[in-house]
Design a protein around this nucleic acid. Sequence first.
DNA 1: TTGAAAGCGTTACCAA
DNA 2: TTGGTAACGCTTTCAA
Lengths: 341, 341
Amino acid sequence: MSKPHKSITAQDVANHAGVSRAVVSRALSDKGSIAPETKTKVIAAARELGYQVNFLAQGLNRKRSQLIGVVVARIKDPFRSSLLEGLIHMIQRRGYQALVTEVNSEKELEATMRQFTQFRVSGVIVTSGQPPATLVNECVQFKIPVVGINRQLDIPLVDFVCSDNQQGAALATDQLLKSGCHSFAWLNYAGSTWAGLQRGVAFEQALESANFGANSVKRVIAEQDGYEGGEAAALAFDLSQGLPNGVFCANAQLACGFLDGMRQRGFDAPNDFHLIGFDNTPQTAQYSYRLTTLNQDISALCSEALNCLESRNKSPNQAARLVRVPVSLVLRHTSPVINLG
Amino acid sequence: MSKPHKSITAQDVANHAGVSRAVVSRALSDKGSIAPETKTKVIAAARELGYQVNFLAQGLNRKRSQLIGVVVARIKDPFRSSLLEGLIHMIQRRGYQALVTEVNSEKELEATMRQFTQFRVSGVIVTSGQPPATLVNECVQFKIPVVGINRQLDIPLVDFVCSDNQQGAALATDQLLKSGCHSFAWLNYAGSTWAGLQRGVAFEQALESANFGANSVKRVIAEQDGYEGGEAAALAFDLSQGLPNGVFCANAQLACGFLDGMRQRGFDAPNDFHLIGFDNTPQTAQYSYRLTTLNQDISALCSEALNCLESRNKSPNQAARLVRVPVSLVLRHTSPVINLG
DNA sequence: TTGAAAGCGTTACCAA
DNA sequence: TTGGTAACGCTTTCAA
């Protein structure tokens, strides 16, 4: 039907408007000086011809594309997919495009980071995995900003945005104490993320400053992450010393699994124990769970991550920043306002 | 510390290996003839210098990047995030990279598709929204293949991969009948996707061929999609004519919500009714739901989608294909093997 | 088989 | 303020 579509270039627009290619570039990019009237003329011509910048050529010349690389893992996990959604949303809103890569091993991450540099991305957001310092250094050498979310990348010049785990643990502890709990459990999984570990430490510290010593909190480490891990932990839970009445979980999936596991053994929250989990995922709000959770402010996390990238873009050598984003307690059924019966 | 990192170009490799730039290109791309020994020599030199092709320059020259555009919406929805995970996985596996864009309105979709062409993507996968024919045509003119997943894009030269909704509805009907159901409900939401509508039609047809006429199935249309929609539909369900004992839902989220809504009214599956939903999301397997569902073969869907793109890349003008991917019934608690009591 | 050279489409520098 | 021109880094004819 329609012919092979010779794509319209800046030169075509220039011809149409009776100016040079250079002027077209200036008119459309707001860089360099240009007479207001020629500018409108060019813009009109561009619109008329349906001109679209070739991002490949643009990037090649500017040594930077408007792509932002995003490293993720296990996207279908509820919190991670919410975070990814927020990131993509924010990336688009700020005029970039998301180059999303799933990574399940450090080897893959290495290849990925390399591909990001090959596309001359404007920044890299790491939400999973521990990028090898050498790779990040490669980015740094290309002056590509890197930011980590909810993980500590202990590398110079790499920023880092994180939900306030200490505050979260304190809120949870406070709530458990106020509702009358006096024996506790902490549930995490083996090989937990850095964030998970931090939450555990903070929980024990918060209890300690309320005069509950280390032996008042039972540490439970599930063999795997996610709902299945939590469920298995509950099913295997040693009840010989009774069930702790205040349980705090490293994440929402573990918490849901733990709750369902306990139900299978005839226990339920809030009657037999109180339960609080991190990450306010959609599922935790559902009738069958109604978990009291700590809500991570996803849009703030994403927004701050992009702030870091843009800020470091301006001054690449500034000291590494650590941005803490406040969390909030969402009171629901598994740890209600009322006291423990 | 380390200097501003002058990036290594093909020219550097050429110098190092004592050949011309052109030879380097051939050695690394397997295009054009080259002596085996020079090839190994060049590859050695490239590795030694740590050479990485600049994808921007490569794409500019080839008029095609190794990017694949993916259009998604509401990523945090469990089925969609699983699908996205599968797509990204498959895209990477086949040597491409995923340019992911979230789209919530047709306007946005239009802008998105445009940006895809500006990046000269190798293909576009649409999992959400109805791209305007004109836009798709633009892609077609750039010879960019477009494929839709679980939706009918009724546009020439656009392929289309879809779970077999008819088969799914037949499997569900069969199961409901075998377990003794004789009155039915169909739950969908207003403004449902094409796939949802198709499932409803197929369900009614399957019932009809089993001699259950149109008045044996009650159509329930929730005001919104997702868990909340299903829950609200259950809470508002008119029970004056009793509760149908076989309920089929357009998707898993609606089904979970409906189940929880009914529980709030004192009814539960499988005792008071049987329930089957489409999409075997992780949540449906959990103890609190244990939904009998129709499993979509995500990895097959993704694989077929990429097959379509690659095939159309070879012969751009072949007739539009429709690939149907079989689904399977996952029997769980809400519609068990045993008969209705 | 190899190398020289002409693009690919844009931006940025430098004169005019 | 403008236009010419040289990059940007790669691929791909076309001769040799």
